[in-house]
């Protein structure tokens, strides 16, 4: 090995200055034990460094001496406190981690508690929802009932207007002998000749049968209309002239001639 070439290569300066790589450092440390010339060259370079660097010294502010002395008196752990120092280790690296199984156990407990609470809440939700649907249904029923009553009330009001009108002629038709319980009333508008029938009491018509109103004109019965499913004042036909009104039970749809054996009520027009 050419010792002089090695010494002059600059590797010793690199080593002393701290910029030699690991391989160069290992090699030099081995060689300086073997070759005193190399060891001497290293010592010479170190001397050069210690004599040269003071020429590049920079003054330090006087308070720094006291500050640094104070820092040296602190316990090792708090030396770097407050200073903008290099973080020696990533923050939190030394934090003692909770054993994984405790974490896992805690997670399971939390999960179970959460699941139980969810079931409880779902139960409450279902019950409340059922109650809500019940109330909603009830409200709909009440509203529709209300509509029905309103319709009935307005019909009754209309009927009342008709019955109490001054041109309206009232013809009471009591039950004939043997059918005294029966009663019906004709309201006859003397100006437009319209006939309305109010059934006060008639037996329910048997299947296939229907009540028919007749007007007696000059002793002859004239069809005045069929009694449909009508609970209040039922508008029937227009009759120009009549001496009396009567109701018979006829076949469904009515007959041209009344079956007098089935006569229920009859009333004369009071002129």
């Amino acid at each position: 090995m050419d010792i002089q070439a090695y010494i002059q290569s600059g590797v010793i300066e690199s080593y002393v200055l701290g910029i030699a790589n690991e391989q160069e450092v290992a090699e030099l440390q081995r060689l300086q034990h073997e070759y005193p010339d190399i060891a001497a060259a290293v010592a010479k370079c170190e001397a050069w460094l210690s004599q040269t660097l003071p020429s590049f010294a920079e003054p330090v502010a006087p308070p720094d001496k006291e500050k640094i002395w104070a820092a040296l008196q602190e316990p090792a752990a708090v030396i770097n406190k407050g200073a903008r120092e290099i973080p020696m280790q990533p923050a939190g690296a030394k934090r003692v981690a909770m054993p994984a199984r405790y974490v896992a156990a805690a997670s399971v407990v939390l999960l179970l508690a959460s699941a139980a609470f969810n079931i409880y809440l779902y139960g409450k939700y279902t019950k409340a929802n059922q109650e809500y649907l019940g109330l909603l249904n009830e409200r709909t029923n009440l509203l529709s009932d209300n509509k029905i009553y309103q319709t009935k009330l307005s019909t009754l009001q209309e009927n009342m207007q008709l019955m109490t009108a001054p041109e309206m002629l009232k013809v009471t038709m009591p039950g004939i002998a043997g059918k005294e319980q029966s009663l019906a009333t004709v309201y006859w508008n003397t100006s437009n000749k319209k006939v309305y029938l109010m059934v006060n009491n008639l037996p329910a018509a048997p299947a296939g049968k229907q009540y028919q109103l007749w007007a007696l004109v000059d002793g002859k019965p004239i069809d005045a209309g069929m009694l449909e499913d009508c609970k209040n004042l039922c508008p029937l036909k227009t009759i120009e002239r009549a001496e009396a009104f009567a109701i018979t039970l006829e076949k469904e749809g009515g007959s041209p001639i009344p079956d007098l054996s089935q006569l229920f009520v009859m009333g004369k027009v009071q002129s």
């Binding site: 660097l53 010294a57 920079e58 330090v60 640094i68 820092a71 200073a83 903008r84």
Partner: peptide, 25 residues
């Protein structure tokens, strides 16, 4: 040694304030 060490530190850091912290370290 402080001024010489400070010269080494400032040569690299080029910032007086930061160099003061490094010198203490």
């Amino acid at each position: 040694y402080a001024p010489t060490l400070n010269g080494i530190i400032l040569g690299i850091i080029q910032d007086h304030e930061v160099a003061g912290d490094v010198l203490q370290e």
